[in-house]
Design a binder for these strands. Sequence first.
DNA 1: GGATAATCGAGACGGTACGTCTTGTCTTAAA
DNA 2: TTTAAGACAAGACGTACCGTCTCGATTATCC
Lengths: 216, 216, 216, 216
Amino acid sequence: MTIPADRNADRNAGPAGGRTAVVSRTGPKRSESIRLAVLNAADDLLVERGFNGVTIEGIAARAGVAKQTVYRWWKSKVDILLDTLADDAREALAWPGGDAVAEEELKAQLRRIAGFFEEPSGQVLRALLGHAQTDQATAEALREGFLREQRERDLAGLRAVLERHTGRPVTEPTVDTLLSVLLGPLYYQALVHGGPPGPDLLDATARHVLDLAAHV
Amino acid sequence: MTIPADRNADRNAGPAGGRTAVVSRTGPKRSESIRLAVLNAADDLLVERGFNGVTIEGIAARAGVAKQTVYRWWKSKVDILLDTLADDAREALAWPGGDAVAEEELKAQLRRIAGFFEEPSGQVLRALLGHAQTDQATAEALREGFLREQRERDLAGLRAVLERHTGRPVTEPTVDTLLSVLLGPLYYQALVHGGPPGPDLLDATARHVLDLAAHV
Amino acid sequence: MTIPADRNADRNAGPAGGRTAVVSRTGPKRSESIRLAVLNAADDLLVERGFNGVTIEGIAARAGVAKQTVYRWWKSKVDILLDTLADDAREALAWPGGDAVAEEELKAQLRRIAGFFEEPSGQVLRALLGHAQTDQATAEALREGFLREQRERDLAGLRAVLERHTGRPVTEPTVDTLLSVLLGPLYYQALVHGGPPGPDLLDATARHVLDLAAHV
Amino acid sequence: MTIPADRNADRNAGPAGGRTAVVSRTGPKRSESIRLAVLNAADDLLVERGFNGVTIEGIAARAGVAKQTVYRWWKSKVDILLDTLADDAREALAWPGGDAVAEEELKAQLRRIAGFFEEPSGQVLRALLGHAQTDQATAEALREGFLREQRERDLAGLRAVLERHTGRPVTEPTVDTLLSVLLGPLYYQALVHGGPPGPDLLDATARHVLDLAAHV
DNA sequence: GGATAATCGAGACGGTACGTCTTGTCTTAAA
DNA sequence: TTTAAGACAAGACGTACCGTCTCGATTATCC
């Protein structure tokens, strides 16, 4: 969670936001500690018991919170996990954007992603991607939220590396395709075969992407 | 379903088969029509209602069969879907192995896989891969069964193409890496972003794989 | 509600009264309009939805009042209904005490009570008597409050009629028994069989009570 | 429960009864021990905690039964209590019909009823009558079921006593009125003032009813 | 005219129970 | 012996109120 002011902007709209300030708005505020307890409980349960082992009742019990309190702020366990992801994944997947050699930077980024999939927050992403395979609502929420933002960050990061490497501008469709070439094998290993990819694969993809960028 | 005699050999072991003929073994045989009705019902429900909409009770009701009858032959809905996959996916993902130009053959194979993901049986695979993200048992069953076999078929198919293309033998680790490079972007599109990949992406990957094979 | 100054004397004791004047007591006074809105809302809900359909939240919502405001002044919905009863039932069940023929006066009083049970305030009494069957606290509150007062008014009213009829004093235990003989069949009809008693029954009881009073 | 064959005739209609035997009807039978455990649990809870303390969940827990099992056979706690009443109250309120002196027999019967109200099954009747004050469905079920049957038994019992006492036939409307005169004061004491009536009252009513029967 | 102290609306919160749904096992009767 | 039908224990679902509590905005009273 990086920008507290924006957090849950849509969810909080109910009592206070949006309406033109006519609404009086009194009463106690939402408890931040409860919010964190719920997100942590969900995360823990996911790691311990898998997606189907995460239940709203279980989350409430472990967070030491009433079930209705969970329902007041989130409408499903998917909603909770999306919130968890938003809090945790952003920085873990950021492009540091140093001035290293391009190939090294790509490899480092791939290793960072591979490492992310091993952590609890990576588990959350895997779980949500898994659920999205057959749940339309989850798929949409994920794409319009986390995935879109992440894609944008990745495109910007990759473009910067490529332009530094080739010394000239790179067109949008090119970066788009190259990003899929870069990330594809890694996600494929993580989602289909489970576990981290061999180092060969990461190095190979990083190199190929740079070659391709140079030749196109 | 290609080899009826072997079908479900392990699953059938329960009530009737397996034991060394000591079991008297009388009564009517397992009804093949029931088996198909169950598999179809599961498939239909998956497409209509998503993975969580598939329930054993729902399957039994739609197949016009008692719940216990389903439990007798399969131990979970995942087991049923694995059965469905085994019946449907093999040929859909086979390498035809013609004598076309290598690049064309790779592209055709990629398009075949992309098409598969749009069909009901592709839905089943996506559902199972999704569930495997957080369910250890499913992950194992999938990897030791369908995924291993499919990987072998893919390795053999790709090696044949590469050797025809380069005119020399290709080492095992090389094919392995190249297979991930080839399939990665496609699976990444299907599983992460949903929907088919752009044609550019498929063509690009096919070409790169051949380039890489030539240079290594 | 006949004596506003005394109204709810005990109930009001909470925040302000009772303590020996040490408490300085400033601030706004209790809103009478809120009190009435709450009592009316409770009454309406009781008639529309039955005892279980009366909830503090429902009352507050319908009265346009915050829940806490209700809890500030009443400690339960039973408490609210007792208040309603005190406001409404007294005069409806009073003995007018004219100088008519005794039999006519008894019949008129019985008909007045029978009519009362058909009205909303009669509903409140029935509801509270009903709840008192299995709720000890309600039973006690009802008996020590409304029922005792009403019993006293009834005893006085009946004694006056009997003494006028027989021309001599009537002993306490006799009036007590005769009051039960008089009211019993009426309440029995109202509470057990629902709906008003046949006119035969009222006339018969009135006559019998006078006969008995004459013979004893 | 006196006539097991008839028990729950309407409720059991679902799977087996009523329809013209077309329905095949297989599967396990309803467990009688569960039925009794549930009725006892409900009875116990009512006595211990009052009507509002009786919850389906509480009944299920105390009976050591799953909640759904309770819902399978009864649709509400009122339904359960009605069943309890049917099992328990019939014989407790029967007219023994000896050949004693009429007055003695009436007094005995009144004492029997008064005693019934002190027992657990009497508690059930009081609870249901209480709930019926504001719940239309309960009121109807009670009147069309238990109360009607009990009224018929009472009418027959009282008529026999009266005819033996007067030596001539008694008309229907007369018995009806006299029954209310007889039972009214007793129920009034039990339901309104709680606790048993004084012996005076019972003796007085019994005598009056016989006087009235003789004079009419 | 401030400070003080109450009322009041709004609603968060931990709970309990609701009535429904699905799971996986078990039991019975018919085929 | 297999199958259909379904009883059963277990437990999660999402909802409704409970009674307590914490805010912030408003009055009134008294110094």
